[in-house]
Amino acid sequence: MAFILESFHSALILIVRLDAELLNIMLLSLKVSGSALISATIVGLPMAALLALTSMPLKGFFLNLMNTCMGLPPVVVGLFIYLMLSRSGPLGFMGLLYTSTAMITAQFVLALPIIVALCHSAIVSVDPVIRQAALTLGATRSQASLTVIAEARYGIISAIIAGFGRLMAEVGAILIVGGNIAGYTRVMTTTIALEADKGNFELALALGIILLGMALLINSLLLIFQRRAIVRK
């Protein structure tokens, strides 16, 4: 078990030193996963709301699809995006392969089903009297829907936290579409994979500890946000 202590020690040293390279890698991780998460929320939340609050054809099928896609292996998503963005693929002309945009795209695809499925269940679990109350107080249909969504904010933030966790821990997809290029597309998880590959286990574990610390920090921020959004009985 000494190696765990050793790794904590190296993690501490790394953090204290915080050289430019490590800082860049950490920031890129946040940038990639953060952008993917925010865009997935911007797209996914309205989708979830539509699924939850309106009746549309193929709704059940769509929800089932989203729930199934929550378990998509990241490498499969990565490979798919790779083939799309490859110069020989349909979107190759955009020249996006091996850029952070490609990584954001892959992570967006990974996050979207989580956001849609979890936000949907958060919204449908809001007591129907909320919608009734809004309507009786003079809300238009869309105002009533927004009120229901606002009441689901606790669950929505939980969905975002779940999505963020998945993205920060993800390596399979971003490795394939990002290429782990030093200084450009190298993020925490791909660095960890690389160092583990090189046999630098201690460094890899230390980076893992830092990643965990980053995730803890972000989640705490989101939880503070969430706590302000709910009331405990």
Binding site: T136, T147, Y154
Partner: peptide, 21 residues
């Protein structure tokens, strides 16, 4: 309604709701 649909906010915010919309 007999079951008041209470919004998960402060009392003042609940009462302000119809005015806000």
């Amino acid at each position: 309604l007999p079951k008041v649909g209470v919004f998960n906010r402060s009392v003042a915010a609940n009462v302000a709701y119809p005015l806000k919309i």
